[in-house]
Nucleic acid binder design. Structure first.
Length: 547
RNA sequence: UGCGGGGUAGAGCAGCUUGGUAGCUCGUCAGGUUCAUAACCUGAAGGUCGUAGGUUCAAAUCCUGCCCCCGCAACCA
């Protein structure tokens, strides 16, 4: 439909929209049909912080993006067992269950508040999960990968960990200075060492672990030392019981959450079920070992196919310093969102951190991003197009033919942004996706400047503004996974989706992808009155004064 | 020490796989414009690409040595 360079470009809008529809329906690139996206389950021994928020948002953006054109299941949850939790509960004079109930709700709030929409939320204390863990355990036992042995060493109750001879001095840990005592436990072991060769073989030539440097790190870990793994504990009781003495090792318990999530998701559908093979595990780099070594080894032992991808992202520093309670620089995600807005914070987190590397948080950076990208570029773009359009026509003017190079070029800019985004997202390169999104916004501002509709004849003015509105539609689709709430506001202003349907649910729940059919078919015949209710609302992205 | 990552304009980064006019965002300075949120657009200044060698007609890009920073070697996303 688009002619070669040099030819006169002239195409009907219908053709153009059809092509866009093709892009979205995944006909151009749709090699992977099902994706099971997971956050780690969050340990409830402390309040949610910005890192939890980041992981959740990153997964949500992946999930919402892929839902535009393929099948996705998205799970998260909380890890509620273990000695630290038991101790925290004790400190507060609470039953562990009571304590985890309280903490767990904070994590649910976090997801809710940040517009993260999961399909499934697994608590390790829930009944079906406990059953799954025992089922999984029995599979490991049946496969001959579990044996009972004794574990002994210098143990610090305070630090909750064993130390080797070289790590202690005068009955104290060199590093933390806490007392250690000789302890012997009768516990179960998993024959991790037997999977060494198999894991090496898999990872030596595989694109399962991302980014690449993490794969090397994992290879290093496997090569250096891979002793059998102690998979039960006998010195505390808050966990899934194996016998009178032992509870299941926290990580066996935690990792099985992915199986529980699958069970729940699959129980809601008859066919076309998800499996671990569809999994894209998004994790922080600190838990790489558990996901890239322990988990695959256990899956191999149980003869379950491995996840398709394990992606380790970096950590947040605050003003260049490591985030820690003792420094008092832990950023509270709830405060952040109530001051700046959920979508704004989502945008910032993803833009600021190159997925895979560490990122640095500061209020100045956050406000700069919001003011420059969101308010000045996106917000202003929406405003200048819609206000002008409203003044001139009171409705979105129909775009029947595209017959100008510049018009075609800017529309194609958005198509390209979408195509590139699909590639970027397949590599979990979220920041590149945001880059291509915001670049298209910049280009659209340039287009307007270049075409200056305010100086043009009535015909040309109408054409330029209709192209401008078209760009806003593209923007709302491409930007919806990042800022679901704000992009829906734009959709509502342009009035191109069925409003009654939209009003029925809170904006953060609206999934543009689920409306895409009517949305796209509407592209062909639209002269929509602008929705004054939304036009006259406050600015979509207000500017923040310098921090 | 072992393993891994990094050192590119004032700041933050991309480029390195497949060598060939050094790019992006922000900041600074000058101009344009008024449809729009004191916004938007254009242009300029600013870099011997950590360091010393090597390969090559040609290296930020490949190879070697060295210096500095930071992670992982610990149940914190």
């Amino acid at each position: 439909m688009v002619q070669k360079r040099g030819d006169v470009i002239k195409t009907s809008y219908r053709n153009y929209a059809a092509n866009f529809e093709k892009l979205l329906s995944g006909k151009i690139k749709n090699s992977v049909k099902k994706r099971f996206i997971t956050t780690p389950i969050y340990y409830v021994n402390g309040n949610p912080h910005i890192g939890h928020l980041y992981t959740s948002v990153a997964c949500d953006v992946l999930s919402r993006f892929y839902k535009l054109f393929s099948k996705v299941a998205f799970s998260s949850g909380t890890d509620e067992h273990g000695q630290k939790v038991e101790r925290e509960a004790l400190k507060r004079n609470l039953e562990p269950q009571k304590y985890v109930d309280e903490m767990q709700s904070k994590f649910l709030d976090l997801l809710d508040r940040s517009n993260v929409k999961v399909d499934c939320f697994v608590r390790t204390t829930s009944k079906d999960h406990k059953e799954n863990v025992l089922k999984f355990w029995n599979k490991l036992v049946d496969s001959g990968n579990i044996y009972k042995g004794s574990y002994s060493g210098w143990y610090s109750t305070v630090d909750e960990s064993y130390y080797s001879e070289s790590e202690i001095k005068d009955g104290k840990s060199i590093e933390t200075g806490s007392d250690v005592e000789w302890l012997e436990e009768e516990v179960y072991f998993f024959k991790l060492s037997e999977w060494k060769e198999k894991l090496l073989e898999i990872y030596s030539d595989s694109n399962m672990i991302f980014p690449e440097e993490r794969r090397k790190e994992v290879l290093g870990m496997i090569n250096s030392d891979l002793p059998d793994l102690c998979v039960s504990r006998s010195n505390f009781s808050w966990g899934i019981k194996l016998d009178d003495q032992n509870v299941v090792y926290v990580w066996v318990d935690a990792l099985v959450n992915y199986i529980t999530a699958l069970d729940r998701i699959n129980s809601k559908q008859d066919t076309d079920c998800f499996s671990i093979e569809n999994a894209i595990h998004i994790i922080g780099k600190d838990i790489l070992k558990f996901h890239a070594i322990y988990w695959p080894a256990m899956l191999l032992a149980c003869k379950v196919p491995l996840p398709s991808k394990i992606y380790a992202h970096g950590w947040w520093t605050v003003d260049g310093q490591k985030m820690s309670k003792s420094l008092g620089n832990v950023v509270d995600p709830f405060d952040l969102m109530s001051k700046y807005g959920a979508d704004e914070v989502r945008y910032f987190l993803l833009k600021e951190m190159n997925f895979g590397n560490d990122g640095d948080f500061s209020y100045k950076k956050l406000e700069d991003r919001i003011n420059l990208d969101l308010a000045n570029s996106i917000g202003n773009l929406v405003q200048r197009i819609l206000k002008f359009t409203e003044k001139e026509y009171g409705r979105v003017p129909k775009l029947d033919f595209i017959d100008d190079d510049k018009d075609m070029a800017i529309l194609q800019e958005w198509d390209k942004a979408l195509i590139k985004s699909i590639e970027f997202m397949d590599n979990q390169s979220l920041h590149s996706y945001l880059d291509s999104f915001i670049s298209a916004v910049f280009e659209t501002n340039k287009y307007l400047e270049d075409q200056s509709p305010w100086k043009k004849s009535a015909d040309r003015k109408r054409k330029i503004l209709s192209v401008g509105c078209e760009c806003l539609k593209r923007m709302s689709i491409l930007g919806a996974p990042i800022m679901p709430e704000k992009m829906i506001e734009i959709v509502k202003a342009i009035n191109i989706m069925d409003h009654e349907e939209l009003e029925e649910q809170p904006v953060s729940d609206i999934d543009i992808s689920s409306h895409l059919n009517s949305y796209v078919s509407n592209l062909n015949n639209w002269t929509f009155p602008l929705n004054e209710n939304y036009l006259n609302k406050d600015k979509i992205f207000p500017i923040f004064s310098k921090h």
